[in-house]
């Protein structure tokens, strides 16, 4: 790692101030992704602002209509929460499929969503369940949040406080892991919500995206057969040694059908 200054604020305001004081400050939540980049000297922040001591950012609240997860809530806290599992089993399943057991003990939902890694799992949940991202400044609808590869609607000085997930009628997340990294080679979250069917894909493109053609087909007939012939455009998809665009496009369809069948 290159040298950096380290700060451990205990309030959001203090964190925002610290982040504003330096051009090249970076926030660190669980750090399960960021620290790997720092170790490999792929990033060089001058100041690191550790959000880990901000107590108000952590925790899960469930009511009949919404699951609210604080930004610093760890993946295993979501995966192993009986309340989350009861309200949105797909969300608990998704959290339990992130990284590995040790990563899930440290990694946080806010860190994952803010990073917008193209192969991360949580963006599929945020987008697929139609969640709202609550920051220290505003509330951002999922559809407006993910912009591109590692790019979100967050402004400088803006920190995620919590994610609000509306409870769907039924939903499921199905992931096909890249064999080496175990990140999503493709992952699909499908949800039948009060506002219609939503289907979001991660791992396949630059960032998480919805598939309107599948959503429309499923709106009329929520069955795997309804989307059998609906393909995503391979031209837009990622290409690497583990998956060609054509393979990813095919996987999205397979996983979408499996998700529809698994939705509960």
């Amino acid at each position: 790692m290159y040298a950096f200054g380290y700060h451990r604020p205990t309030t959001i305001d203090e964190a925002v101030t610290l982040l504003g004081q330096s051009e090249d400050a970076s926030a660190i939540a669980g750090g399960q992704t960021l620290l790997q980049s720092l170790k490999q000297r792929l990033a060089q922040p001058g100041e690191l602002v550790d959000l880990g001591a901000i107590k108000e950012l952590s925790g899960i609240a469930v009511d009949g209509r919404t699951v609210v997860i604080g930004a610093l809530t760890k993946h295993n806290e979501v995966a192993l929460s009986s309340e989350v599992r009861k309200a949105v089993p797909a969300l608990a399943d998704l959290a339990g499929a992130i990284g590995d057991h040790q990563v899930r003990n440290v990694g946080t939902i806010g860190g994952s969503v803010a990073n917008s890694d193209p192969a991360a799992d949580y963006p599929a949940a945020v987008l697929g369940l139609g969640a709202t991202v609550e920051t220290n400044q505003r509330r951002i609808a999922a559809d407006d949040f993910f912009i591109d590869l590692f790019e979100t609607a967050l402004e400088p000085g803006e920190l995620i406080k919590a994610i609000h997930f509306p409870v769907p009628k039924r939903a499921a997340y199905v992931k096909f892991a890249q064999p080496a990294s175990r990140y999503a080679l493709a992952g699909v979250m499908v949800a039948e919500t009060g506002d219609g069917v939503r289907l979001a894909v991660t791992g396949a493109g630059a960032c998480a995206f919805r598939v309107p053609a599948m959503e429309q087909a499923l709106a009329g007939d929520f069955s795997a057969d309804a989307i059998k012939g609906v393909q995503v455009d391979a031209d837009e998809l990622n290409d690497d040694i583990h998956g060609t665009p054509a393979y990813r496009a095919h996987l999205v369809n397979v996983l979408a059908r499996r998700a529809v069948e698994a939705a509960r």
Binding site: P179, A180, S181, Y183, D240, I241, H242
Partner: peptide, 8 residues
């Protein structure tokens, strides 16, 4: 395949 991210 230079890290465990790509070498399985």
């Amino acid at each position: 395949t230079g890290t465990y991210m790509d070498y399985t």
